[in-house]
Simulated scan of single mutants.
Amino acid sequence: MRTLAFSVIAGAVLLGACSNQPKFDFAPGVCYFVATPEGEPPRLQQMGENVAQIELCAAQLEEMRLRFLRMGGSNQEVTGAYQGRFIFVDREGVKIGKSLTGSRFFAMARTGDGRLAIPGAIQRDETGRPIAIAAPPEAK
Rank of each mutant, 00 (worst) to 15 (best):
A52K: 08
V51C: 03
L44R: 04
N75I: 08
T79K: 10
T79G: 05
F88E: 00
S74M: 15
L56E: 12
R85H: 05
E77W: 07
M64W: 09
A81H: 03
G80L: 06
N50A: 13
R85V: 05
R85Y: 04
M47H: 06
L69P: 01
M47N: 08
F86Y: 15
G84R: 04
F86A: 03
L69H: 05
G84D: 01
R85F: 10
N75M: 10
Q60F: 05
L69V: 05
L44Y: 12
Q45C: 13
F88K: 08
N75D: 11
L61D: 02
R65C: 01
Q83F: 04
S74T: 15
R85S: 04
F88I: 00
F68H: 13
R67Y: 13
V51A: 04
G84M: 06
L69I: 10
M64F: 09
Q76P: 03
V51N: 01
L44Q: 06
Q60H: 14
V51E: 04
R65H: 05
L66K: 08
M47E: 08
N75E: 12
R65S: 08
Q76V: 03
Y82C: 02
R70P: 01
M64A: 04
N75G: 15
Q60V: 00
Q46A: 07
R85D: 02
V89L: 11
A52Q: 11
Q45F: 13
L61N: 00
A52S: 11
L56W: 04
L66F: 05
Q53F: 15
G73Y: 08
S74R: 14
R70W: 09
L61S: 05
R65K: 08
I54Q: 15
Y82F: 15
L56A: 08
C57K: 02
E63G: 06
E62A: 07
T79W: 06
A81T: 02
R65V: 08
Q45I: 11
V78Q: 00
M47K: 12
A59K: 14
Q53G: 02
A52Y: 07
G80T: 10
E77A: 15
E77D: 10
Q60A: 10
E63L: 06
S74Q: 14
E49D: 12
R70G: 01
